[in-house]
Amino acid sequence: MAGPSGRPDPDAAAKLRLDKWLWQARFFKSRSLAAAVIEAGSVRVNGTRVSRPGRDISAGDTLTFPQGGRIRVVRILALGLRRGPATEAQALYLDLEPSAAPDPLE
Rank of each mutant, 00 (worst) to 15 (best):
A2S: 14
G3K: 10
P4F: 13
P4W: 12
P4I: 11
G6P: 02
R7A: 14
D9C: 07
D9Q: 08
P10C: 04
D11Y: 13
D11P: 01
A12R: 14
A12N: 09
A13R: 14
A14Q: 13
A14Y: 02
L16Y: 05
R17I: 01
L18Q: 00
D19I: 03
K20Y: 06
Q24A: 07
A25Q: 04
A25Y: 00
F28Y: 12
K29G: 06
K29I: 08
R31D: 01
S32K: 14
A34W: 00
V37A: 09
V37R: 04
V37T: 11
E39M: 10
E39F: 03
A40R: 14
G41Q: 11
G41S: 11
G41P: 02
S42P: 01
V43Y: 03
V43E: 03
R44K: 15
R44H: 14
V45P: 01
V45N: 03
G47D: 07
G47K: 08
G47S: 09
R49H: 08
R49P: 01
V50H: 01
V50A: 01
S51F: 14
P53S: 09
R55H: 12
D56F: 10
I57S: 00
I57C: 02
I57N: 00
A59P: 01
G60L: 06
G60H: 09
D61S: 09
T62S: 09
T62E: 13
L63K: 01
L63D: 02
T64F: 02
T64Y: 04
F65G: 00
P66Y: 08
G68H: 07
G69T: 14
R70I: 07
V73G: 02
V73W: 02
V73P: 00
V74W: 02
V74S: 00
R75V: 05
I76Y: 05
I76V: 15
I76M: 09
L77P: 07
L79I: 08
L79A: 05
L79F: 07
L81A: 15
R82I: 06
R82G: 05
R83I: 04
R83N: 04
R83A: 04
R83H: 08
T87R: 15
T87D: 13
T87K: 14
E88K: 07
A89V: 05
Q90I: 08
Q90D: 11
Q90L: 11
L92A: 01
L92Y: 02
L92W: 02
Y93G: 01
Y93V: 03
L94T: 14
L94I: 09
L94Q: 15
L94Y: 10
D95P: 07
D95V: 11
D95E: 15
D95Y: 12
L96V: 07
L96H: 09
P98K: 11
P98L: 11
S99N: 13
A100K: 13
A101Y: 10
A101V: 10
P102W: 13
D103G: 02
D103V: 02
D103T: 03
P104D: 04
L105I: 12
L105A: 15
E106M: 11
